[in-house]
């Protein structure tokens, strides 16, 4: 029973990692870039959610606050790509890595200057309530997180596989020039992807804030961990991101419980290194090597 309880809390944590990993994968799938500021975008989304929902702030209902936060982050993502990232359009991946790391620092600084450095948490209608399934006790927050994650992943999966825009996104990541020739507005598609990943980050952020406290520096390490999740799944695969997130989320509490102290911190990264060494490209790999 104990194991099952650990498993549930692991899955709920893993879903948030998975959601954040989805943001990484979205951008990677569509522009072959990695956004190291994703964790900081989550933090920003969480703070926006708190600003909209908490009593004493705007005091809006939960769902409206969530939508508003997602909307603002979407616009933020779009403008970020339009006015900052387009400056290095077509440059090697590496430039994007450096640029997003710098952006992360700036977002963290801005959030700290606006909201201060004390941890705050979100007030939700389902705080403290639990569901009892037999002898298993599931907090409602965890159930909401799991449901939201599954719904979002499915939607995004079908979006990429079956809509014109989704396919255009995949095309522009595989070969920008060829995509141009096919009449895809590559730059605008990029901006839309960033908007989408902003929305996902906001949803993940609000759910994260519903579960625990946020402060401006939470983004960095959380982002890196989610990043590990995305890599375990194989960057570029949406179900992979979710699977990776779940793996990381489940490994952590079990390592904390059954392995020597300190190992729960490094367990996700060791797992990632193992996956990368044994299966470079992740569990759902999409890399194929060209022979010379």
């Amino acid at each position: 029973m104990d194991i099952l309880q650990l498993l549930v809390s692991g899955i709920a944590n893993g879903c948030i990692y998975g959601l954040l990993a989805l943001g990484f994968v979205l951008i990677y799938k569509a522009s072959e870039a990695v956004n190291f500021a994703q964790g900081d975008m989550l933090m920003l989304g969480a703070f926006l959610g708190i600003a909209f929902i908490n009593t004493g702030n705007a005091d809006l209902p939960f769902l409206i606050g969530l939508t508003l936060s997602a909307l603002v982050m979407g616009i933020f993502g779009y403008l970020l790509d339009r006015f900052v990232l387009r400056g290095i359009f077509g440059q090697p991946q590496f430039a994007m890595v450096i640029l997003t790391i710098a952006l992360g620092f700036l977002i963290r600084f801005a959030a700290g200057a606006i909201w201060g450095h004390d941890p705050v948490s979100l007030q939700t209608p389902f705080a403290g309530r639990t569901l009892e399934l037999g002898s298993l006790i599931v907090p409602v927050v965890d159930a909401v997180i799991i449901l939201a994650t599954v719904a979002l992943t499915t939607t995004l999966y079908f979006f990429f596989a079956h809509t014109r825009l989704g396919v255009a996104m995949q095309a522009s990541s595989q070969n920008q020039m060829a995509a141009y020739y096919m009449g895809i507005p590559v730059k605008r598609v990029n901006s839309i992807v960033w908007a989408l990943s902003g929305v996902v980050a906001a949803i993940a952020g609000v759910l994260f804030a519903a579960k625990g406290a946020v402060e401006p520096s939470v983004g960095l390490l959380f982002g890196i961990k989610a990043f590990a999740a995305a890599v375990i799944g194989g960057l570029g695969s949406l179900p992979g991101a979710l699977a990776g997130g779940l793996l990381v989320g489940i490994v952590e509490p079990f390592a904390a419980r059954y392995l020597p102290a300190g190992s729960s911190q490094i367990a996700p990264y060791v797992l990632m290194l193992l996956v990368l060494i044994l299966r470079p490209g992740g569990l759902f790999a999409q890399i194929s090597q060209k022979k010379v």
Partner: peptide, 11 residues
Amino acid sequence: SRTYLKTERMR
């Protein structure tokens, strides 16, 4: 010079 990104997934 102007550059265009190509995927690293199929090298």
